[in-house]
Structures are given as C-alpha cells and as structure tokens.
C-alpha cells in the first residue's frame, strides 16, 4: 500500500478502523455460554500436505486394486510414450487435486492456483496428450463400443466421489460449486486412470468422447451438486 500512504486517505482509514465499537457485553456472554455448554477437547486436523498424501494413497490403492480386478488390456495396447505421458499427466493431476481438496478442508489455506485454473490446465494437458499421441481413427461401432466405457467410468467415479466426500467432511468444508467440482475431479481422475489401463479402444475420438466427455459431465454434475447443497445450507 506504499503508493497510497502519501496522501491523507491512509490516515483517515486508520482513524475509521480505530473507531471500533465494542461488542455488546451481553452478546459476548451469550456466545460464551452457548459454546461452553458443548466445549470438549478436539484433536487438530493434520496439515494439508498430510491430508493430500492420504487422498493420494487412497487414489493409488483404489486405482491399483480396480486395475487388477478389471484388467490391463489398455496397457498392452498402448506404446511406452502414450502410457508414460498419460500416466504422468493423470498422476500429476491427482497430486494437485488432492492438495486442492485438502486445502479446502482447512479454512484460510494458502491457494497457489485458483481451482478453475487448475481444472483448465489439467483438462488442456489430457486433451493435448490424447490428441497428439493417439491415432485419429474412428472405430466402426463408435456408439456401441463407447457407452460401456462411460457406464464403467460413472460406476467407478460415483462411489469414489462418495468416499472422498466422506473423508473431506472431517474438515470444515464449505459447500459450493468449487468443493463439489474438486471432489468430482479427483473421483473422475481415478476412474479415468482405471479406464485408460483397461480400455481396448485406444483411439483419440473414443478417448475424447467416451472417456473425457463423460468426465466433463461428471465434474459439472459435482459442481451443480455442490451449488445445490450450498443453497440448502443457507
């Protein structure tokens, strides 16, 4: 505020700020009495980094278990470059979304990047990797081969979102579209990773429409659900 301190405005603002009225004594007493009735020791929540590690560990365990259960056809059908690029992008995105969710659990956590920018960056990276590294051939049965993938993605993402929500509820989650979209994004990433390793249709149109298209719908649904819960809470 250095550029503002040369005129009288700063001094006037200081005087305005200093003229604070005390809170009414009876109000303070009422608040203290109300809270004292339910005063019990609480264990402080872990740091955002530790919470993010927990989310990431759950992500990794679920991804490994589901991949082992559903199959690894996709891994065999992709080249080393494709597999490395897509795994790296999904892995980095999982780290960043885990951190974003952990930060949302603790009021006044430092935000390095707004959630919308994080989502845009992650989406751009996945779309670019698929568009550049995977072949642009359209399978003959585009629709018939596509819907089972979206059904599986939804079937994985919904319980995963519920799990992440239950874990995140331990913090002070403020309901809203960002919270809903963050939880949905992490769950969708898990579903995308499992699907990527399992899917036998490794062509760009299939991946963009049936994997990423459904991911976008699920994240939007998460944001709407968050908005709705905010509406209900207020």
């Amino acid at each position: 505020m250095n550029d503002n301190s040369h005129d009288g405005l700063d001094r006037r603002l200081d005087a305005w700020a200093a003229a604070r009225e005390p809170a009414p004594h009876e109000l303070e007493q009422r608040i203290a009495q109300t809270l004292a009735s339910s005063l019990a020791p609480v264990r402080p929540l872990a740091s955002p980094t530790r919470l993010a590690v927990v989310f990431l560990a759950i992500f990794a365990v679920c991804a490994a278990a589901l991949t082992a259960a559903i199959g690894t056809t996709g891994i065999r059908l992709t080249s080393a470059a494709q597999l490395t690029a897509i795994s790296a992008i999904l892995g980095i995105a999982a780290v960043l979304f885990s951190l974003a969710l952990a930060n949302q659990m603790i009021p006044a956590s430092l935000r390095v990047l707004p959630f919308s920018a994080l989502l845009a960056l992650a989406s751009a990276a996945v779309i670019a990797a698929i568009a550049l590294l995977f072949p642009w051939t359209t399978p003959r049965l585009f629709l018939e081969e596509g819907w089972p993938c979206s059904a599986m993605e939804t079937a994985i993402a919904l319980p995963a979102a519920l799990l992440f929500f239950l874990l995140a509820r331990r913090g002070a989650l403020f309901p809203g579209s960002t919270t809903g979209a963050t939880i949905a994004s992490l769950a969708v990433l898990l579903a995308l990773a499992v699907l990527q390793f399992q899917c036998m249709f490794q062509q760009a149109p299939h991946l963009l429409v049936w994997h990423l298209g459904v991911a976008a719908i699920l994240i939007a649904a998460g944001a709407l659900l968050g908005k709705w819960s905010q509406h209900r809470a207020s």
């Binding site: 402080p44 929540l45 740091s47 603790i106 009021p107």
Partner: peptide, 11 residues
C-alpha cells in the same frame, strides 16, 4: 457457532 464446530481445523 461455525468457529466452534470447525475449531479442530485450526493449526
């Protein structure tokens, strides 16, 4: 009341 419910999130 919200501060009270969230006090475990203060570090």
């Amino acid at each position: 009341i919200r501060i009270h419910r969230s006090r475990h999130t203060y570090r």
